[in-house]
Design a protein around this nucleic acid. Sequence first.
DNA 1: TCCGGCGGTGCAACCGTATTCAAAAACCGC
DNA 2: GCGGTTTTTGAATACGGTTGCACCGCCGGA
Lengths: 344, 344
Amino acid sequence: MKPLSGRVTSLDVAALAGVSQSAVSRAFTEGSSISEAKRKAILDAALKLNYVPNSIASSLTTRRTNMVAVILGNLDNPFYVQVLKALITRLQARGVQILTFTVKNGSNSDDALMRVLRYQVDGIILTSAQLSTRMTGICHDRGIPIVLFNRYIPGSSASGVRCDNAAGGRLMAEALLGAGARSFALLKGDPNGTTSQDRQRGFTDCLLERGIPPADILELEGQSTYDGGHAATLRAFLDERHPIPDAIFGINDIMAMGAMDALRGEMGVKIPADLMVGGFDNIDEADRWPYRLTTVRQPVDEMTEEALNLLDLDNPGAAIQPGIDIKVPGRIVWRSTIPRPVDL
Amino acid sequence: MKPLSGRVTSLDVAALAGVSQSAVSRAFTEGSSISEAKRKAILDAALKLNYVPNSIASSLTTRRTNMVAVILGNLDNPFYVQVLKALITRLQARGVQILTFTVKNGSNSDDALMRVLRYQVDGIILTSAQLSTRMTGICHDRGIPIVLFNRYIPGSSASGVRCDNAAGGRLMAEALLGAGARSFALLKGDPNGTTSQDRQRGFTDCLLERGIPPADILELEGQSTYDGGHAATLRAFLDERHPIPDAIFGINDIMAMGAMDALRGEMGVKIPADLMVGGFDNIDEADRWPYRLTTVRQPVDEMTEEALNLLDLDNPGAAIQPGIDIKVPGRIVWRSTIPRPVDL
DNA sequence: TCCGGCGGTGCAACCGTATTCAAAAACCGC
DNA sequence: GCGGTTTTTGAATACGGTTGCACCGCCGGA
């Protein structure tokens, strides 16, 4: 039985199996009414013809594509690679495909979203990038659930999951204070991202409350990446515009790692003896031998799980809940870049 | 003008603009015959209604989805993240969307491919994982171009792009020999991957030709990841079953980095004084201060470019060429883990 | 004035599947 | 066997666009 070339449709299978096209459709649809004998025969015929149902066509009638869009801002940060991995794993297990989009970091993702909408995805997960409330409105009208990952849009109806970044920033401030640091620098992240802003706010608020002089803010020039952190650190300390503090808080791990390498490699600073370093995210790399970075862990698994719950793919078109905002707590992971106080 | 809730179709736009539904379709199709005035009017109406063309529906008649599937095996290896990034950038620039799939490393990707086929993608890029020739046959019959990235299937009609891994392995052997190494270990990768096999073969062949004793092959237990390389190195050298050689060749950078950290962190080995390390890939991380790994660079941009050329998305249904196999050369990137001979 | 040609337009026939509806078939207890 | 259920079944239609085709109006050249 030569596999026919070109497209094979349900009609071809129907002809070969001697049944109607509807029967073929039913044979491939879970839980539809068809006799076991006929289903077997149809599946046999389908196999002979290498027939695979056309999801595009079926999406047209079912109004479900079994695709969700994942919009990413920054694959240079391993944290988001980890998020992507977690999402892929979970979604694939439910038979949902992933349409991957990227947007330039810090750019508005409205046009990306418009492209997404053409594809009639069943849901959208947005990590990074801004989004206008007009867009969330459009998605809402069309009944497409949209979940923000680690960001929120004040005054929007979109749901979201995020780490409690402000609380995490406080945790880090407390950890560093507890280890004896009294002067601080803060390696700033994307100025448009609520994530970095919140971490920074939590950190500086904590210092303020304790009556500690505010942290020296190290502005970022490029992206919030390894290279960005590396460059900003060199620029700040090498030309002596900034005094070297007791401790530096990198707004995320990858930037903190860039800072560490700049400090140790180019400047001969000992960590933590001369200077302590704190990070945020707990990416895999933070645990490696050269870094052993003390950081605030974001529970990726829990967060992606919650994100998919919010997406609620099983209840399509269910009345979309108004802006549920889930905040999961982070916690300190102690490693070598901050000496752990004995009393903890 | 309240944006209507629910779906908005071209018929709604046609009604509002006072034209036929075909006109709406033409207004959104580049290069179709429609007067400029009417097009403007239609686009206005569309904007008012927040209309976006339904790609699913149009795919049904055009037989093009503007989606390509990217099948990934191992996002734990930053090299493939880099590949993914490069593919996304290039494809998005052409208005092509990416359907991302992962398959367990080393597992057969036939079933993944079957899922892919349902979505009528315009092309498939496969990095990692095996593929039966039956599958490549099915794709061929359906006119779906499929490009293998850094792998090949002997005796298959599928096209592919890859780094000249065997030649790269030789380059590394020569580099290490030139630096004075005479005894070798090789940190093995995925036994099913042609990529690692070829690199290993090139390396060992070169040693053989020079009359050097064969490399001590360090078997991998888990995945070919950082942790895999780390664990294999510890296991091999710590219990003294293996003598410490002059040099070790990590079959890819991420494993070499794991090995370096094991050697320096757990065993106090100095690199390159006590032992040289060579890698393969030239991932971004290899250039960072703690590693500065001498490695064989894979030209990702060139390779992804070639892969998309092979996909030939602009000529749909063009007679699919029989198995074009493009091999691009790698080259040594000299850094600190192998002392560079002065005469080079 | 007539005619060929051409850009613009709407009608209607698809694309490949899901699903409704009514008819046919199978099953049931008596 | 028979009326009444319940399950299977196929014909027909819908989903939201694209596109071949016929037609219309208009222009320029003969």
